[in-house]
């Protein structure tokens, strides 16, 4: 129906369109991931999205909500997709099931479902499996260009289902670049020595840095379609860059370079796709800057002095916790109304 009087703004698409944009933006990075690391990612994606939809359907049924509108808004697909990208390739199916169960049931629906969850569901699921299954979550496979071989789709499926074991593929696993930094800096090795390992590329790890580029490109698409705003990615990447730069300048021999920090681990994916989750992120522009800055700072702190090699998920969850407070203190003034007397912002 066309309107003949104002407003002339076409109704912007709802959750569906937004989530669809996110999925479109994820495609180039995902293809690059498969290019560098093999088809194992497809197995992750199939299981994660499948379980996300399954558990969402289950909890909707338990809550006596209609299935179709909620299942077709793509939010579960996005959560499953992001989760699949965060966990190591060739993860066992049950690990993905546990993660998605916590993401959908505990992270999303126990708080009231889409729009009410204070925490990013995909990150809730990821952190649960990260702290629960340290062995599986630190088994990372080498990029194809380094190892020279990879599983095919059938092998990858049967591996995830537990029909073949690690011994057969043991030679293909190795610590991630971030892991190597963490361990070897702890052993007082120099950055130049650490970077001798074949997993390192120009900035980050081989493959990883290029995938990060494609996340960046996807992020630009999200900005172009106005799915996200610039505040969170810019302030988050800016904070990581700033801290990395300060410490790098102080001691370039034993501190990873700013380029490495930006292009490795989950920073690029996190800045554009995870921290920008419209439900759990801050909702005011000033608040978004604070929120992004906080995540970037925490990522650097956790990576440098924390117990885990990467800290994007923890940083996002910790910042999620602060969102109500951030939003409270960054409410924009209502135009045409005198600011209240006791407003000291």
């Amino acid at each position: 129906m066309s309107t003949l009087s104002s407003p002339f703004v076409t109704p912007s698409a709802g959750t569906n369109r937004m989530m669809l944009n996110v999925l479109i933006a994820l495609i180039p990075g995902t293809l690059a991931y498969i290019w560098y690391f093999g088809v194992g990612l497809i197995v992750n994606l199939v299981f994660a999205i499948g379980f996300a939809l399954l558990f969402e359907a289950l909890i909707l049924w338990l809550r006596k909500r209609p299935l179709k509108p909620y299942l077709s808004d793509y939010s579960a697909v996005v959560a499953g997709w992001l989760f699949a990208l965060c966990i190591p390739m060739h993860s066992p199916w049950w690990l993905i099931a546990v993660g998605m169960a916590f993401a959908m049931i505990a992270g999303k629906h126990l708080y009231g479902g889409l729009g009410f969850n204070p925490f990013n569901p995909a990150m809730v699921g990821y952190v649960v499996v990260l702290i629960s299954f340290p062995q599986q979550m630190t088994t990372w496979f080498l990029p194809i260009t380094v190892s020279g071989e990879a599983m095919n789709l059938v092998e990858a499926f049967s591996y995830s289902l537990g029909f073949s074991d690690l011994q057969q593929w043991d030679a293909l696993t190795m610590a991630t670049p971030l892991d190597q930094y963490k361990t070897n800096l702890g052993l007082n090795m120099m950055v130049s020595e650490i970077r001798q390992s074949p997993v390192f590329g120009d900035f980050g790890g081989v493959g990883w840095e290029w995938i990060a580029n494609w996340w960046f490109l996807g992020g630009l698409y999200l900005l172009y379609t106005k799915t996200i705003r610039w505040h969170i990615p810019v302030s988050m990447l800016g904070a990581v860059l700033l801290f990395a730069l300060i410490f790098y300048v102080m001691d370039p021999d034993s501190i990873a370079s700013p380029g490495f920090h930006l292009f490795s681990g989950g920073v690029m994916l996190g800045a554009f796709f995870i921290a920008t989750d419209p439900v759990s992120a801050s909702t005011t522009n000033k608040g978004r800057l604070v929120y992004g800055c906080m995540i970037g700072t925490l990522v650097y702190i956790i990576r440098s002095w924390g117990g885990y090699p990467d800290g994007v998920a923890f940083a996002v969850l910790l910042a999620n916790m602060c969102v109500p407070l951030i939003d409270y203190y960054t409410q924009p003034r209502v135009y045409g109304v005198e600011p209240p007397e006791d407003h000291h912002h």
Partner: peptide
């Protein structure tokens, strides 16, 4: 059984 550490960690107590 590989174990499910979450149950042993503090969050497991709350759950």
């Amino acid at each position: 059984y590989d174990g499910f550490l979450l149950a042993i960690l503090p969050p497991g107590a709350f759950f």
